[in-house]
Amino acid sequence: MNLESYYIPKENTSKPKGEDAHFIHKDYQTIGVADGVGGWTKRGVDAGKYARELMENCVLTLYGENKGAVNPMVVLNKAYFDTKAPGSSTACIITLTRDNYLHAVNVGDSGFMLFRDGEMVYKSPVQQSAFNCPYQLGRSKGCDRPSSAEELKVAVKAGDILVVGSDGLFDNMFVSEMKEIIDNVEKDGLTPKELAWTLAEVASYNSLDGDGDTPFAQAKRFAGLGRGKGGKVDDITVIVAYIVI
């Protein structure tokens, strides 16, 4: 995989790093994204620290698991037990296997989409207990453990484009908007970094539009919560991988 990322933290002077975290390990063809749950702010906790420590521990686990194929569930499980920071976060870990599958584990509403020949052919399921209340890893009461993660395997082909992100991306961009941008990848000669940047910037623009329609607004209407207009102001992480086999 040819891998790159782009991150836009929402403006917050007390949390300049935001609450998202991610990693890319090109040697192991493995990536991960975590989104610290903002509700911890009411308790004086920066959940971004939990997300960052969780992702750092995933990378450390990868270095310790270098004798064979990467198992995302093993990586997530060990990273979870090694993470001591207060808070909680979603998590999605994905690796490309030697037999050309994406092997992923996902907890919550971060996730990924796979595009092939201009069409979205797969979207990872969202895990949430209620509207805007995703499953979340953490040690506190009410939080989830890695056993709650959904394990996924998706076949890939050369030329596929993988888009991984936190909910700040998926809540603020429709698939049709992503397809329009991805359709121009070859024509415009976009690198993975440039595609990640473009997707993140459009999602960020949509998040600040108080009257526009977004997936978040549609979900809000469906849940019967208010007028259901506008985007969701949030941290936005985008990782793009061009599949090369």
Rank of each mutant, 00 (worst) to 15 (best):
K26T: 15
D209A: 09
D99W: 00
S129E: 10
K179Q: 15
Y122E: 08
N184W: 13
W40K: 12
A47N: 05
N77C: 14
L208N: 05
K232E: 01
V164K: 04
V156C: 00
N172M: 02
P9E: 07
I94P: 02
T214M: 04
T198C: 10
V107T: 02
D20N: 00
T95L: 05
R52I: 05
T13S: 15
D109L: 02
G189P: 05
M55P: 00
H25A: 14
T90F: 02
K193V: 03
M178I: 13
N172A: 03
G230N: 07
I181Y: 08
C143K: 11
T90H: 02
D144I: 12
P125G: 09
G111S: 04
K26P: 09
P134E: 01
M113L: 12
D160Y: 13
T61A: 06
G38H: 05
L169A: 03
L199Y: 08
K232P: 01
I243G: 08
S5K: 13
L190H: 07
T237H: 06
Y6W: 10
R145H: 13
N206I: 07
E194K: 12
A241Y: 02
L225D: 12
G226F: 04
I239Q: 01
A51S: 12
I239D: 00
V37E: 00
K232H: 06
V156Q: 02
K78E: 12
I245E: 09
C92N: 04
R98S: 15
F23W: 09
E194G: 08
Q29P: 04
P146K: 08
Y135E: 01
A219W: 06
Q128S: 12
H22W: 11
G189R: 05
A130Q: 08
Y205G: 12
A104Y: 06
R227F: 12
A223C: 10
V126M: 11
N57Y: 02
T191S: 15
R98Q: 15
S148M: 11
A34V: 09
K10M: 11
G228S: 11
E180F: 11
G226P: 05
G87T: 07
Q29W: 13
E65D: 09
L76S: 03
M173F: 04
L114M: 10
T198G: 09
I94G: 02
I94K: 05
L102E: 03
P215M: 11
G228C: 07
Q128P: 07
G138H: 01
T61H: 03
A149Y: 02
S14T: 13
W40C: 10
G68V: 08
V126W: 09
G64S: 14
R221W: 14
L76M: 13
Q29I: 11
M73D: 04
A200I: 07
V74K: 11
